[in-house]
Every structure is written in C-alpha cells, then in structure tokens.
C-alpha cells in the first residue's frame, strides 16, 4: 500500500504540484515568498538531519554546530580573509564533516546510550555557541553582516528573494534525494539495523563505527552547506539564530512530526509546520502575543499523540483505507 501511495505522488497530481511550486513563488508577495523560502530551508535541514536522527536513530543536537559552521565560518572567511564564499562553503563543509566524524567516534568509543548521546551532542552545540560568541573572528556576540546580494553567482550571490528561492528549492530536493538514495542503498539498511538493534547488527556483519561515521559525515556536511546558503539569504550572520540550540530543536521537531527515518517524512513536517508557525505569528503575534506559540504547541502535541511515528505514516494509513481495493489488489 505504501507503494500505491507513492505511485500517486509520481502521478500527474504530483507533477501539477511541482509545476505550481516552480511557477507560483515568483508571483508571490515577498512576505509569502519569505515563508516559502524558510520552509524550504527547514525541509533541507530536517532531511539532512534525518540521516542521523531518523535512519540511525541518534537524536543529535550537535547539528546546530554544523549549520552554524556553514553560516558563520564561511561568512567570516569572506569578510576577514577575503575567501570566496564558494570556497568558504567547501571549507566549512569539510570542517563540519570532521567534527561529525569525531562526534560519531566518541559515541562509538564510549558506547554512549541514546540519552548520553543526546546530552553529549547538546554539550557540543553549547560549546559551539560559546566559541562563536567569544571569538571575534567569527563575529562574536554581535554577528557579521554580509555584503549586499547583487546576484553575482561567482561570489555566491543569487539576487535575494527569487534567487534564494531557487537555491533553497535545489538544496531541499537534493537533500530529499540523498535520503531516498541512502534508504535504497546498503547504508540505509545498515543504519536502520543499527537503530533497531545494535548488537544484532554486529552479529550479521554490520561495521557499526564505519556506518555511524558515514551517516554523521554526510549529514553534517549537508547541514553545513545549507547553513551557508541560508546565511547568504539572511545576509546577517546572527549567532543567536544560526548557532543557537533553537534551530536544531526546530529541525528535530519538524522531522519527528513529519515521520522519522522516512525519505519524505521530515520534509513533510517542515512544509506543514513552518508555514503554520509563520502564519500564526503573523496573524496573532501583534494582537495576542504568545498565543501563536500556544496554538503551535497544541498542534504539535496533538500530532505526536495521534501518530507517534509522524504524520506521513498516518496519511499512508488513511490513503490505504480510502482505496482498499487498490491496496489489496496490489
């Protein structure tokens, strides 16, 4: 039945949605375009995080470190040393990958359980915040301001609004496709086996350390690249936004609500919750400040209670119930 569901996604309906997604945004008012871009940023981030958090089942809070490195370091390299931001993107991604490998190695070497892993990665994220705030090279507590985006592609400039939309659309799709590819490759099988039962995984020949590192490195590098693109869109490299624990908690939340471990789950969650959060804030933030957080919280709790594995599995179930014939005849 799951296949049926995705067959529908590849049907004309899906193509129409895709075409609309491509055609509509340029026509949108800038406020709504901003929401769309923000949603795409989180689709990309949640999908990148899913490789570690969903497939390997390791709730990493250290990803704000990778997003932050991608954003702050590439910005600092450009402003302080005049390094082209494309090169900065590559350098940041490599450094994020190395940090990811180290964290995965520490997890393996000291046999951290799930809870210890969460706490250790949180400590790493916190260290990242402290380092950025205390180091002037990375902008310190006041952050860094990128030069105006004049649309010079070679200087990693995409011309603001619409340009940022295209970049984020590409990153979101790439991030999702990497998910699909991993899930269908041996790595996906290894990661899911590690998540479900580490000892049993070793007993059937899975090298735990190698694949935990692989997952973390891919996920960290991807998050870093998204971080670089995101800061280019924001123009202002704000450490309290980009290296704070808040960004990673949002990512974990969207991924969980959408459906952990699935190729489209985290993307689904982000597409749903980012616009919801933004619109609630826009409508209620002025009149009843704080209420939008409340409603948002209630929605999230309701979703998690209704379907602990996320919304996507729930929709799959509804779908197969709506079309029992199609599901049984296969």
């Amino acid at each position: 039945m799951r296949q049926e569901f995705y067959k529908t996604l590849t049907s004309p309906v899906w193509l129409v949605i895709l075409v609309l997604a491509v055609v509509l945004p340029p026509l949108l008012p800038s406020y709504y375009l901003h929401i769309v871009i923000l949603a795409l940023v989180y689709v990309a981030l949640a999908s990148a995080w899913n490789i570690v958090g969903g497939m390997a089942g390791q709730i990493s809070l250290a990803h704000s470190l990778f997003i932050g490195t991608g954003a702050m370091l590439s910005t600092a390299l450009l402003l302080k040393l005049g390094v082209n931001m494309w090169l900065g993107l590559v350098i940041s991604a490599i450094i994020s990958g190395v940090m990811g490998a180290m964290i995965a190695w520490i997890d393996f070497r000291f046999q951290l359980g799930h809870l210890s892993f969460v706490l250790i990665t949180m400590a790493f994220a916190e260290m990242g915040t402290v380092i950025v705030e205390g180091w002037d090279f990375l902008g310190g507590a006041s952050g860094l301001l990128l030069p105006q985006d004049k649309g010079d592609f070679l200087a990693f400039q995409f011309g603001g609004g619409i340009g940022a939309f295209w970049v984020m659309l590409v990153l979101a799709i790439v991030s999702i496709l990497i998910n699909v590819a991993i899930l269908n490759a041996p790595l996906g099988y290894y990661l899911r086996t590690i998540r479900d039962n580490e000892n049993a995984a070793r007993a059937i020949g899975v090298n735990i350390l190698r694949y935990k590192i692989a997952a973390m490195v891919i996920s960290a590098m991807l998050s870093s690249v998204i971080g670089t693109a995101y800061v280019r869109y924001l123009t202002f490299a704000d450490p309290y936004l980009l290296v704070s624990p808040i960004i990673i908690i949002e990512v974990v939340l969207f991924a969980t609500v959408g459906g952990l471990g699935r190729a489209y789950g985290p993307a689904f969650g982000a597409l749903l919750l980012v616009p919801l959060g933004e619109i609630l804030r826009g409508k209620l933030g002025g009149t009843l400040p704080g209420l939008h957080y409340f409603i948002y919280g209630v929605v999230v709790i309701a979703v998690i209670l209704m379907s602990p594995r996320g919304l996507l599995p729930l929709f799959e179930k509804w779908f197969s119930r709506m079309r029992p014939k199609a599901a049984t005849s296969k």
Partner: peptide, 10 residues
Amino acid sequence: FQVVQTFADM
C-alpha cells in the same frame, strides 16, 4: 542469539 532479537521498524 538465544534471546530473540527484535527490530522495531524493519
């Protein structure tokens, strides 16, 4: 394994 190994989501 003597104790049968389980897998939650596979």
